[in-house]
Each structure stands twice: as structure tokens, then as C-alpha cells.
Design a protein around this nucleic acid. Structure first.
Lengths: 356, 356
DNA sequence: CTGAAAGCGCTTACAG
DNA sequence: CTGAAAGCGCTTACAG
């Protein structure tokens, strides 16, 4: 691999053709379908290619072949947070295994580099996996007019938008019911903030579906989510450990202390627990805390977290498999996939203590 | 955005030109440098584009512009492991912040889809960040003949290969010395396995540099790494929690129990500690354990881990900044960056007990 | 088995 | 301000 001749520029297929005495067609065949040329031709061509340090330009190749061998994952948070969010990380693991299986790379598309819509417009990928999408969002429009295959995780199932979900409403209902059964009536609900690209006009986001589940359970116990006299305190937290701690702080300063904190995310729940621990508030004796997701850390923290197990890795896996089906033109078995969740009963939730 | 006409195929610049009555040049300008055409032209063109659902093809654009707006990160382990490796994750965080700053995406390139060399050959990125590279590896050759900018983290600094490192030999020396000062003489050294693309012929890999540091400290105490009578037990572990546990198991079965376990990775050290804890072996009373990296978990586990702090996020950050310099044709300040490390003294290392 | 030529969908000097 | 045309580096019917 001598760097003779034009040492600055990469040699092209044309150079190899000239140098080897064969045509560009032959050179291309040598690299892609050697069976279509003579053994000798292939040998000579590969040899000169080697000698001149020729490697087919991936960009030109992709352009000509109309594919990238990469799928994109639209991060729900900036990279820094995403890489610290065990749930997201698990989703990526699932997606990643499928990518490896198909020999694809995984392009991480961070939100908020200028406009996330622009990023989606110009993403050089064969398909996209997104989180929390809903029909009507700008991004969804862009993906549709680009005619690029995509599937969304934790989005709102709708026509023409394959999705992977658990039954969020039902899961939230079940865990709130569990809390109520333990006698809790003063409850703090910690919602998740909407994704970067969502907005309030979207009625069926995951946080909203979960809140509806909470509400249904509360109503069964004659409690209301809203109103002056509601014993339910509501607050929103970013999905980070830091904001979870901050939320713990906030709750601890409440006039009327809740006996249970119901969160939409383990990472936030753990943040609360850490704050409480640092300030002498004992979980679950002083206050119960429940989470959502069942990340690995949920069983490591003490007290171990009562939570909803949702198989994040499997979500990623299923979404990616579906995406590859679409990319390869195969028909999907089902476009709206639903994975079962499980309630995980551990130690962070206890019965409320009798007053007096 | 009616989907009239050829509803199957995406419209191209040609369609918009025809439909709007302007030239392809004008259409291109409308999207890229609207200042070069009249206001009216821009308006009409953008309008028709919108009406026909036209979005410039990113692939064609990239090909024409000769850039991707994405940099690649060659994962040192398969995605599944990488997403569970706090050190790698921190490196990605650092890289990611820089990507966002420049409006680039981050392409994760997993090893072992067929051949990793092929992946590097065909990666559609503007630059690459790699880990553990050494001159002489196939991958390095490929990157060089592709003339694609790259920088390597934890590799072997050499001419023409920008790198980011800590002083691994010195760090290993220091922590081993600390162990020896505590009176330990029966020591188990847990090395890291070489990266997927490395091989034994490479003499200056990170594991080897660290081992040399250990050796230097041991020699000062009259101990030898090798030989029948050496009190030093050596074993290799994958950089995963599971294999760390397995290594703990292995060590616990040793004929002559070491009083200290010196590992090259916190994740492995923590694996050992977890195994020991589950089997009634008390750290550091029964055996001391030290790590390397100072991942966040190192301070959460009990006993907290004595380890080497190396700023992984900063490694990623510096590597990415250097890469963007190269991509933009700016000259690098220095090609071999070295970041300081720190010894973190916590509770997992204690003095050896007198054996009477 | 081999090669001339069209095509992939953009960008951008260049001339008007 | 506008457009015809060349070019980016490949792939692939198609004809021989």
C-alpha cells in the first residue's frame, strides 16, 4: 500500500480502472460480485487497489445503493442525560442487539441541536426509532413525508405509526391501587415531564396515560386528583437522579406531609429515597415510595423499590425488529405491539401507620 | 402537503423545478442560500416543495457535499456490554456533548458484525473515535488509507495517531504501591482482557502498561510477577459485572488465599466484592479489593472502593474536540493528550492482619 | 467474461 | 437574479 502518485486525494474507481487496465464496471464487480469477472481480472484489480490504497467510498456507495446500513435512534433527552438513564440505556441495548444481528450501525440523534426536526430531516439513516411520538407532531410529519420507516416506543398508537408499548394506564392504575390498599390517602404524585418534542396539546402521552390510571384508582377510593381539598399533591420531575433528589427535597418541605410518593420513574423514585435518607426521613416507615420501570438499581437500593417492571430491552428489541421488517419490505406481524408489565412488590411501600 | 401524483416515490429537486417553473439551481438555492435568489422565487419554490412533500435527500446531499454530519465511535465491546459499562458510557457522554455542540450525530459502530474492519471500511462518518488502538492494527491501516480523521482513547500514542490517555503505567504503579505499603504480599492481579481487535503481538496496550506498573512496584518490594514461587496470582477478566463476580468466585477457591485483589477496572472490582459479600467474605477485613476508573458506583458500594480516578467523560470530550479540529482542517494543539489521574483512598483497602 | 453509458439527487462554478 | 451543465464516485441494466 504505497502512497505514491496523488498522495493527497483518495484514489477512485476510475484510478483503479486506468491503472489496472480494466473498466470501472470490472473494478466494481471485483469488490461486489467477483463471480461476474474472471479470476485473473479480480486478482489484478484487487492487487492494484491494494497497491494504490483504494477503498470504495462509502458515501458514494450508499448514495448509489440507496441505503446506509445504519438506523437512527432519536434520543428523548440530551446525550448526557440519556447515557445516565438506565431505562433509555436498556432500550438502546435491545436496539443494539438487533443492529448487530443485521450488521447495521446505530446512529444516536440528540434532540436540540438547533431544531430536532432538522436533525430528522437530514438524518442519513435507513429507519428511525423514536420515543413518545404522537400523530400530529412535526417530527412525525417529517418522517412521513420523508417516507422513512419508523417505529415509536412509548408513543401513542395510531394508524400508520407502528408502536411498542406496555399498558401504561393499567399499570399506573394497578400500582396506585396497591398504594391505596395500604391505607395511604395523602399522596404525592411525581409526573414525568413531557418529551422535548411533545407539547401540551397532545392528550395521550405516556405521562398523561399514567396519570389517568392513577386517577381511576383514586376515584374508586373517592379521591379526586384536582380541587382545593384534594389530598393529592402533584409535581413534575425531569427523569434524572438530580431532579429526583430535588423533588424529594420539595416534598419534604410540604405543609402536609404525604405518606406515599408515587413516581413515574425509578430513577426519580431513587432520587427521592436518596434525599430522604440523607435527611433522616426513613423509607418506608416515614413515607412510602414507589417507582416505575424496574431498572436494575431498583433492587440494589435499600429499601428495595416497589415498582412496575417493564421490559425496556425488549421494547427496543421489538421496535428494532419491526423496523428492519419495514426496511426490508417485509410485512409486519402487528403494528401495535404491547408487552406485559408486572407489579414488583418490594420493601419501599408499607402500610400507613395509624395516627394517634 | 398533498400526496398527489407519484405517491410512491419521493419527489426530487427536478420535480420541484418543473412544478415551480424554476431551475434546479434555484430550488437548491432556495433551500441552502435563499439570499441568492429573489424573494418571490424562494417563496414559490418553498411553497411547491411543501405542497409536493419535498425534503432534500440527505444521502444525495451528503454525497455531493462530501460530509455526513456524523462521527463514529468504535465500541470496544458489543453494544449490550458497552451500555452496561459505566466507563464507556462516561466516554460516550463526553463525546456526545461535543457532537451536540457541533450539531453532529453519533454513530455507534459495534465490533464483530462480521469483521470489524469491514465496518470501519464502510462507516459513513466524517471521523472516528476509537479505543485502544495501536499502530500496526488492521483497523488503523484501514482508517489511514481511508484518510479519515480519527483519534484513539486508551491507545498507544504514536506518530500520526492522535491519542488521549492517562499515565496508565504510573497509575498502576501507584495503586499497587499503596497496596504493598499496607503490608499485602499475597496478591491477586485481575487484568483486563485485550480489546476485540487487539492481539498479543501488541506490546503497549493499556492492560500491558498497567501490568508493567504493577510489576515495577512489586519489584521494589522484592516480589516477582512470575515464577513458581511468586505469591502473585494472575487472572484475566472481561470488563463486565458478571465476569467480575465469576473472578471473585475463582479467587475464593484459591489454595492460598490472597489478602488483596488488585483489579484494572471498578466494574470487575465491584463484581468481586458482590461475590464476596454473598459468600460471607468480608471486605476489607478478610480481603482488600482495589479498582480502577472511579465510576460513580465505586462510591456507592460498601465498602466504598479505593481506586484510580480517571476522568472518562473528559477523555471523550477531548478526543471529540480534537477530532472536530481535524475534520475542520484546524491544526491540533497537541496530538498526544494526557490527563492527570488521582488516587482515591476509600475503605475497600485495609492493612493486612498480622498472622502471628 | 467485458465495458460504454446512464443513473442515483444533489451542489456549484460559470456565463449570461 | 437566473439557469445549463459538469461533477461528486459509485452501481447496474444492457449490448456485445
Amino acid at each position: 500500500m504505497e502512497q505514491n502518485e496523488k498522495s493527497e486525494k483518495r484514489p477512485t474507481i476510475k484510478d483503479i480502472a486506468r491503472e489496472s487496465g480494466y473498466s470501472k464496471t470490472a473494478v466494481s464487480f471485483a469488490f461486489n460480485t467477483p463471480s461476474r469477472i474472471s479470476k485473473k481480472a479480480a486478482e489484478v484489480i484487487l492487487d492494484t487497489a491494494n497497491r494504490l490504497g483504494y477503498i470504495p467510498d462509502p458515501m458514494a456507495r450508499n448514495f448509489s445503493l440507496r441505503r446506509h446500513l445504519s438506523i437512527g435512534f432519536l434520543l428523548p433527552q440530551i446525550i448526557h442525560y440519556s447515557m445516565r438513564n438506565p431505562y433509555t440505556l436498556q432500550v438502546i441495548q435491545g436496539i443494539g442487539s438487533v443492529c448487530q444481528k443485521y450488521g447495521y450501525t446505530l446512529t444516536l440523534i440528540p434532540p436540540l441541536n438547533e431544531s430536532i426536526t432538522d436533525a430528522v430531516r437530514s438524518a442519513a439513516v435507513d429507519g428511525l426509532i423514536t420515543m413518545g411520538m404522537q400523530v400530529g407532531m412535526d417530527i412525525v410529519d417529517v418522517m412521513k413525508t420523508r417516507k422513512i420507516p419508523f417505529v415509536t416506543i412509548d408513543g401513542t398508537p395510531s394508524e400508520g405509526m407502528p408502536s411498542v408499548n406496555i399498558q401504561d394506564e393499567q399499570a399506573a392504575y394497578r400500582i396506585m391501587k396497591l398504594v391505596l390498599e395500604q391505607g395511604h390517602r395523602n399522596i404525592a404524585i411525581v409526573s414525568l415531564s413531557e418529551d422535548a418534542f411533545a407539547s401540551d396539546e397532545f392528550e395521550a402521552s405516556v405521562p398523561k396515560r399514567r396519570k389517568r390510571g392513577y386517577e381511576r384508582a383514586l376515584n374508586e377510593y373517592g379521591l379526586s386528583l384536582y380541587g382545593e381539598d384534594s389530598p393529592i399533591f402533584q409535581v413534575v420531575s425531569e427523569c434524572t437522579l438530580e431532579d429526583g433528589k430535588h423533588t424529594g427535597h420539595l416534598i419534604s418541605k410540604l405543609n402536609k406531609q404525604p405518606t406515599a410518593v408515587v413516581t413515574m420513574s425509578d430513577i426519580v423514585a431513587i432520587g427521592c429515597i436518596l434525599y430522604f435518607r440523607e435527611h433522616g426521613i426513613v423509607v418506608p416507615n416515614d413515607v412510602s415510595v414507589v417507582g416505575f420501570d424496574n431498572i436494575i438499581e431498583a433492587q440494589l437500593i435499600s429499601p428495595a423499590l416497589t415498582t412496575i417492571d417493564q421490559p425496556a430491552g425488549e421494547k427496543g428489541y421489538l421496535a428494532a425488529e419491526a423496523l428492519f421488517c419495514m426496511i426490508n419490505g417485509d410485512s409486519l406481524g402487528s403494528t401495535h405491539m404491547e408487552i406485559p408489565f408486572t407489579i414488583i412488590n418490594r420493601q419501599s411501600l408499607a402500610g400507613v401507620k395509624e395516627e394517634i
